[in-house]
Design a binder for these strands. Sequence first.
RNA 1: GCGGGGGUAGCCGAGCAUGGCCAAAGGCGCAGGACUUAAGAUCCUGUUCCGUAGGGAUACGAGGGUUCAAAUCCCUCCCUCCGCACCA
Length: 956
Amino acid sequence: MADMNFKEIEEKWQRRWEESNIFDAEIEKEKKFFLTVPYPYTSGPLHIGHGRTNTIGDIIARFKRLQGYNVLFPMAFHVTGTPILAIADSIAKGEDAVVERYKGYVSIYEDAAKVEEIVSSFSNAENIADFFAARISEDFKRMGYSIDWRRKFNTTEPMYNKFIEWQFKKLYDKGVIKKGKYPITYSCIDGSPVGEDDIEEGDINKVSIIEHTTIKFKLSDDTYLIAATLRPETIFGVINLWIKPSARYVKVKVGKEVWIVSEEAAEKLGYQREKVDVLEQIEGSYFVGKKVEEPVDGREIAVLPANFVDPDVGTGVVYSVPAHAPYDYIALEDLRRTEGLEIEPIKIIGIEGYELPAKEICERMGIESQEDERLEEATQIIYKDEFYRGVLNEKCGIFAGVEIAAIKDEVKDWLKSENIADVFYETSRPAVTRGGGKVLVAVLQDQWFIDYTPSWWKDLGHKLVDGMTFYPEKYKPYMQNIIDWLALRPCARKRGLGTKFPFEKGWIIESLSDSTIYMALYTVAHRLRQLPVEALEEKFFDYVFLGIGNAEELAKELNKPLQGLQGRGAEPHNEMEILTEIKEEFEYWYPNDLRHTAPPHLSNHLVFFLMHHAAIFPESRWPRAITLNELMIREGHKISKSKGNVIPLAKVSELYGVDLFRLYCAINADFASVVNWREQDVDAVKKRFNVLIGLFEDSIGAEELKKEELTHTDRWLLSRFYRRLKESIERFEAFRIRDVGLNMIFNLMKDVRYYEHRESLERRRRIVKNVMGDWLIILSPIVPHICEEMWHKLRGHEDSFISRQTLPEIKEEFIDKRVEREEEYLFSLIEDLNEILKIARIEPTKIYIYTADADADTDTDNWKWEVFRAIKDLPERDKIKEAMKLRKDKSTVDFVKRVIKSNLDYFELNEREILEREKAYLTKEFGCGIEINEEYDPKGKKKFAIPLKPAIYIEG
RNA sequence: GCGGGGGUAGCCGAGCAUGGCCAAAGGCGCAGGACUUAAGAUCCUGUUCCGUAGGGAUACGAGGGUUCAAAUCCCUCCCUCCGCACCA
């Protein structure tokens, strides 16, 4: 056993499975189960974290096969999107970091000699996707996944493109594909949108888009100083504007108006609006002392200088609300000291605990200077407090008396509708691309969206989720909530790999929008390859997936392209037949019975998956269930490239063994908890696993116990086994795989060890043989290779694969509560004996055991059991009273007290009989004579006996 | 802030929804023992405190409450992890 070659065993069975095509799913019996796990993105190798989700998926697939389902578990590859393209560009440009990273990736799989060449081929994005798709499918095979590989595809191939076009046409017909303005992060040097991957430290320190409100303050020459703010509701308290005298400002023509903003802001504005023309530059100091008109009430206020103003944040013009903004308050204090300027703040927000919030927070924190960095913190505190607790006061016109949290957007909308305010976007922090180009916010004027807001759609989505199973269950209400807040989602971009957007040139369908209903494609993918791509028109998919259209007409149209295909050497086909078969295959397999993935997908992929099904498919084709497992961490830390703690999936086999990995994934945590990959724990599981395998090997040559040979102990083990098996099947069905693993491996092994101690090694070999076949079957979804190996050793090679078996029958006749209770009784007696021996520190020469019925005046008197029976179901407070009715004696009270304290579960056992039977065993255990219910009772212990808990006297 | 998890013995982690059989599974670590030339592996025993008879005391983030009875139910507080999107 110690020298068992796991790798060889794994490879052998993987090869045999593949040769026998046992996981290729064909239409057969009524009961089918269609399971999917999201396809992997092919930008690099997968690691053990990805392995968890896919392994769980495979375990479920294998379990469903055992349950007698015809299971389809397919896989494909995701290529769509920008990252692969970005990598190809970087490699083409020869960026060292990326080239080195990919050399590392490739050398996981390839000889050093080939690495260079392969990586250089990655300047073509297609080669990256092809390379990793091929390697990942090898990885998956090596993990023992029971996938039907005939159905694989990738998301950039023409067949997929056709399918996605169809999907978008369906959505377009529903009126949910729309066009509108949309802000994005953008690099002006590269002239393109940038995502997290493109931004320097974007993965660590996320850049988000912040919407500022700009407010127009009219100067005397009818131009406007444009102030930007995050708190438009404070406009009612404005008393001056701030400007940085040393900064450069520009006049820009925006539409018909002339705006004045900082030079930096003008550039940003150029990306956010159409028609922005720079007219002239002006020093900031020019504006100092000028008067502007405050737009709500028309008050005249002054433009004042302030150092804290950053021309690269917002518009470089800030309006001042010293009552509520610490920066403004401090700056104004400065001016009061230096210039003697006196301006009264206007308080507009009432909030408990503050009189003049800005003043008080500065005083409390001891902030006195504009340069003080803690001003930022003070601002945050006030912002938060006022947002959640503040109420606008009587100075705020129609908004008076309302909480800010509730009214903020309304104020903003009102200001916009009055043509006072506008929108200006800013990044949440200064950011540059990895290439060093400045990142700012651009507004796409004609972005394409999917609009998830229509109520008919949300209603369908809710209905769909209502009818589904989620595990863990908490994600079901969570999903309903996501559907509620889901609104607009950009569905196309100008860059990246993918399907061309069918409604406008130059756009590519975005990668999350193109992976929402592709499970449907698995059902027919291998058959669609019989057809030329040109045939995969809207009508075709309408017919196959929705049953719309006329089959004969469609067949006629197919005829033409099929002729062409024949010309290319394909078999002649009857197009009507092909069409029918394809439709049947879809109808047989769909809907998707279970989608298994990880919780981070809930608010994006999964909700689109559900919503698109709701919109496009009839109810009978809606997904049935979603299961989710948490992520995997390693030694307590997140697995990530930057931490350098990644273990590639490809290395699992040689480092640990595939079955061990699968077992660890299954039992280390429930779906709802994170799996912590700890070498120490892995090692512990490995030892146990090896013992289990040894147990099996030990029994292969043993002779099964015959029914007539079975003793109490044998029946006890069989009862334990079938009880655990029965529980495990129930739990498996409820996705509680961890419980199954613990129960069928660790707990059962404990039972077997106990049995061996009670009986003998030899007999253990024989009894394990009795249950071995059933045991292997229930474990086979989790550790399929070793089970397959053992199965064949047990059954010989002519027998079919364990992977094709069905669940063993539960031998109910062996599940025997009495047998188990008897053993429990004996076990707790032994525990008591041991405890006494330990505490009394004696070597026993003779042990006396007295059962409850022996403590009586006559042979027929069994009052203790009678009272025990009589009071078993009564509440505690009534027990003594009831007992006294039966037997008026002080000893009855003592007895009942002891019963209550012992907390015994009532069960009828013939204690004498059990003890007589086990006398030999007890003698062996304690190495001394055992006497049962003897008269001899020198210490008067007999009276302490209660039912199920005999009294004990030990002589030492 | 919103939403969702957690806080259990030296550590990791069950149990808490159906309160009592929970001094609290299992594992790791540690100590002792068996086996072995030895190491490893495996197995057994112990691992809050007290106790020469199967018992008792104190314990499950902190504090309070409900109850005959709370790790388990309710309230308050403290600490901590994750998500909040357009990114695959």
